[in-house]
């Protein structure tokens, strides 16, 4: 469970201060698929950074599985990210000069996974995104859709309980985008991992269980398809 309690984040100081997040509070149950929906500059990326421990809001709590990650030391936050979180970015951030399997192996190396089990896990992850036969190719030779599938393999290889996807289909055409979406949702359903998609694409957002609308750093509304309570804030 992810509990966000009254977080605020301000960039800059005094006159130039900019409040990116204003007293944001919500809760995400385990295994849900969540869309954080908002226009650019709405604070949705800042929210994702705060939830994943990349950024530290000045006030509030980010409680994940009972642990407030804002009170952890950097070292522990790094470990938390390495073990529990997978990231997918709009511009893929795959390492073009490395092979496909080396790209996928990186999170395992960071998380200190033993050599013996790495290969198996890398191949399983590549297999689930249909890239196994490309494992020895260089990542730069892949197409955009393949790169994003590679990024998904990299995000899921260490069996994270939470996956953050920042505009995962933003750089893809609709056909390849749809395939990437399918992969993400099927991982969410099959493994029970929480999927948090940050997007401005309402169609993509509509496919999620929970839709959090964010505007000017504040939560506008939260739609929960499962409870249909549509709590307004």
């Amino acid at each position: 469970m992810i509990e966000i309690k009254h977080i605020s984040k301000t960039y800059g100081k005094k006159e130039s201060a900019f409040e990116a997040l204003k007293d944001v509070t919500f809760t995400i149950p385990d295994g849900a698929s969540v869309a954080i929906l908002g226009k650019s500059g709405s604070g949705k990326s800042t929210l994702m950074h705060a939830m994943s421990g990349l950024d530290r809001p000045q006030t509030g709590e980010v409680v994940i599985d009972g642990q407030n990650i804002l009170t952890l030391k950097d070292k522990q936050v790094d470990r938390f990210r390495a073990e529990k979180i997978g990231f997918i970015f709009q511009s893929f951030f795959v390492q073009g000069n490395e092979t496909v399997s080396d790209n996928v192996s990186l999170p395992l190396e960071i998380a200190n996974v033993a050599f013996s089990s790495r290969r198996k896990r890398v191949e399983a992850a590549l297999d689930s995104v249909d890239l196994l036969e490309k494992k020895n190719n260089r990542a730069k030779d892949l197409s955009g859709g393949q790169k994003q599938r590679l990024a998904i393999a990299r995000a899921i290889v260490n069996n994270p309980s939470i996956i953050f996807a920042d505009e995962p289909t933003g750089n893809l055409d609709s056909v390849t985008g749809a395939k990437v979406e399918d992969l993400l949702f099927s991982y969410n359903k099959n493994k029970g991992a929480t999927l948090i998609i940050v997007t401005h694409d309402a169609d993509l957002g509509a496919k999620c269980d929970i839709i959090i609308h964010i505007k000017d750093g504040k939560i506008e509304s939260i739609d929960n398809k499962k409870t249909r309570d549509g709590a307004k804030r």
Partner: peptide, 16 residues
């Protein structure tokens, strides 16, 4: 820069 950012986002420690 980007590669370093990614590695750090994935939880690679400063020291590493």
């Amino acid at each position: 820069t980007q590669q370093i950012g990614l590695m750090k986002a994935l939880g690679m420690r400063r020291r590493d």
